[in-house]
Design a protein around this nucleic acid. Structure first.
Lengths: 205, 205
DNA sequence: GGTCGGCGGTGACAAATGTCATCGGGATCG
DNA sequence: CGATCCCGATGACATTTGTCACCGCCGACC
């Protein structure tokens, strides 16, 4: 298909994984890893410096997560296709990823051969989404929460009291309680803490 | 040092990682991967079937986690040394791991060369613990919670109400509140949800 | 034997939270 | 223009939670 090798950027904060992945992908004749990064900002810098064809990004990284990196890459390096590899596949993440132009989204349970194939697909302009994650995302659907409800629920995520949340969100405590109550109601949760857990599981916060 | 190669068992639920790791370790002349597993129970079965010298276990796996597998391996295959590789290094995990006889505990941020060296160390009867994780574990110290407080806090972890916890723990609601209050006090938390978060961060629940 | 700490419980009180009705201001859409 | 929805807020009320004091029982330790 293509005569020149695919130039890859690999970003993952776990050296062991990244190194192993690089070694594995290097075995493929038509793939070459031109840069590696251990954090979100580093990935951006590397992408600008090396102009890879495809960036393989881990979802959870220090600094910026993979999705944010992908979003910024679209501006900084429009020719670079992006794909996300993740351990925990929360449905909401997939949606967010697709919105910022990610072309591949897969769990770390895929085999190396599959990964190489998907990289070629993405390089060629195609897309790939793990079928299981896609099914979950479709069945989970969109977040029923309004933007404000989401904000407030996020602030509640670490166990803060209503007063703290109100202070941090610059809202009245009563309003915060209303949002939390409404969010918990929409999520079918007994209280806001269960709501936080549910929203997390769906990738909505 | 040794004339025969080290026989390895690799257990990790992420195929991509496991495969890449296997490929990487296979490059070392004195290491040979004799079995792989994608879950805790599978790791146990593989260990019995292949009697490896060293078992490299991921901490988070379906079924049984790496520490539980290590604990059972000590009985099922006493000659097999165990080591844990983990992405998130919570201090409490290290302590639990050492208690069940794990000889190596390291984050996934180590390089492949280091991993190979540590495998040799462990095979030779030595131990290795990541310095950073060790420091955290020492500074974090033991859990200040009594066994019962820990139980109740665990039951509170998913946002359950006092009544639910009481029912599940077969305790009076008042007693549950007392334990939660005391646990939150010991942890310096504002409420039980923050206490849950803190206890989680320390690996105490 | 006495002391101490963990366990399990009760009762009471204050504080935080959940729930509901209701209000006004904007934005958006038909 | 009216309908609808999100935003932000207030007030009132019931419920839940947090906190404290205090009880008895048991086991460990000095």
């Amino acid at each position: 298909m293509t005569t020149e090798p695919v130039r890859l950027l690999l970003a993952d904060d776990e050296h062991l994984i990244r190194g192993a992945l690089a070694a594995l992908l290097a075995l493929e004749d038509d793939l070459t890893v031109v840069a590696q990064a251990a954090s979100g900002p580093e990935a951006l810098a590397m992408a600008q410096a090396h102009q890879p064809d495809v960036a393989v990004l881990d979802l959870q990284m220090p600094g910026l997560d993979g999705i944010e990196v992908a979003g910024r890459l679209r501006r900084l390096a429009p020719d670079c296709r992006t794909m996300i590899v993740t351990g925990h596949g929360r449905p909401g993440y997939l949606k967010r990823a697709l919105e910022v132009g990610v072309r591949g989204f897969l769990p770390k349970t895929v085999s190396a051969a599959d990964l190489a194939g998907i990289i070629r697909t993405v390089r060629g302009g195609g897309r790939y989404v793990d079928p299981e994650l896609a099914a979950e995302a479709i069945s989970a659907g969109d977040s029923p929460l309004t933007p404000r409800e989401t904000d407030v629920l996020e602030l509640a995520a670490d166990g803060a009291s209503v007063a703290e949340i109100a202070a941090r969100a610059a809202l009245s405590p009563g309003t915060v309680r209303n949002y939390l109550s409404s969010a918990a109601g929409k999520l079918g949760a007994e209280n806001r803490h269960a709501a936080v857990r549910l929203a997390r599981e769906h990738g909505w916060i």
